[in-house]
């Protein structure tokens, strides 16, 4: 395999990793802070994609410009979902919360089916055909923009978590929810904000996906599956790990389809997922001490 081909693969992997990182970020955040496997994450991504589609087709808003709009909207939706529904059952077991979030998932799928039908839709901004050529490597500008957007979002999330008071409170809550209460943190408000941020991140991921891939209501399933793999590869609940996980999944899919054929990329991804879960449940970069291995 010559240099240019490898280069092309590297570019594709990097672009995929960007989108996947964004998909995993919100999912991991919710798990890290609240210990919830949010089965609604896939449908929130899907709804984010449709929001972008709607803003684009109805008002001609560019998919990248729609991100701030839909992020704010979805933050509020997420805040409401957590505050009105999930907070009621935070103290029950993991069965309960998973069923609950799955209930939210299928309600949203139903909504999308009703509003947009089961057809494939796509967002095609005018510049989507423009390509940057580097030797024999071709890079659509759109993909470059997506990569840039991912970096920007990551920086924003990093600053929010590490430099703001709310972000610190979120970290404190994720380390120990009881002690957090003792130092005067209203953990329910923190939960609401966390779920809101996670939902906004899902919407952002949806917007990025909509700008390059066709969208349809049942896309939630595959993307929820990807969120699982990304989160586990990076270490469940580990935000920086989500980005590593995104890269890991992109590599696994690409290598899987190269070695076993394109139709095997998902098999490879899930096989890697299960193996990581069993052998390194704390993720590729996580530390053993802090994972929920025993108890």
């Amino acid at each position: 395999m010559d240099f240019w081909v490898l280069g092309q693969y590297a570019v594709n992997i990097l672009f995929l990793a960007g989108i996947y990182g964004c998909v995993g970020l919100g999912f991991s955040l919710v798990y890290g802070v609240m210990n919830i496997i949010n089965l609604a994450h896939g449908s929130l991504i899907m709804m984010g994609a449709y929001t972008t589609f709607w803003l684009f087709t109805s008002y001609g808003i560019d998919p990248f410009l729609s991100i701030p709009l839909s992020a704010v909207l979805f933050f509020m939706i997420g805040y409401f979902i957590q505050g009105a529904i999930i907070n009621r059952v935070m103290k029950t077991g993991i069965f309960m919360i998973m069923i609950l979030t799955y209930g939210i998932e299928i309600i949203l799928v139903n909504l999308a089916l009703y509003l947009w039908k089961a057809n494939y839709r796509s967002v095609a901004p005018a510049y989507s055909g423009n390509i940057l050529e580097l030797g024999s490597i071709t890079i659509p500008y759109l993909k470059l923009a997506i990569l840039a957007a991912t970096v920007l979002i990551t920086v924003c999330v990093y600053l929010f978590i590490n430099k703001t008071k709310t972000g610190m409170a979120i970290q404190a809550t994720s380390l120990n929810r009881y002690s957090a209460q003792l130092v005067g943190i209203d953990i329910h408000r923190i939960y609401n904000i966390t779920y809101g941020v996670s939902t906004a991140l899902a919407a952002t991921a949806g917007a990025l996906i909509a700008s390059v891939y066709p969208i349809f209501p049942s896309m939630e399933g595959p993307f929820l599956g990807k969120a699982f793999v990304i989160a586990v590869l990076g270490g469940l609940g580990n935000m920086a790990g989500a980005l590593v996980g995104g890269l890991g999944l992109a590599v696994a899919e690409t290598v899987g389809s190269l070695v076993f054929g394109a139709s095997y990329q998902n098999v490879t991804a899930f096989a890697v997922f299960v193996i990581i879960l069993v052998l390194r449940p704390y993720g590729l970069v996580g530390k053993r001490f802090f994972a929920e291995i025993s108890s």
Binding site: N35, I37, F228, N266, F270, V274
Partner: peptide
């Protein structure tokens, strides 16, 4: 694996 990890592993097995 236990708890959430077990749930995710079984879902992963199903997908695979």
């Amino acid at each position: 694996t236990k708890g959430h990890y077990f749930v995710m592993a079984t879902l992963g097995v199903n997908e695979a």
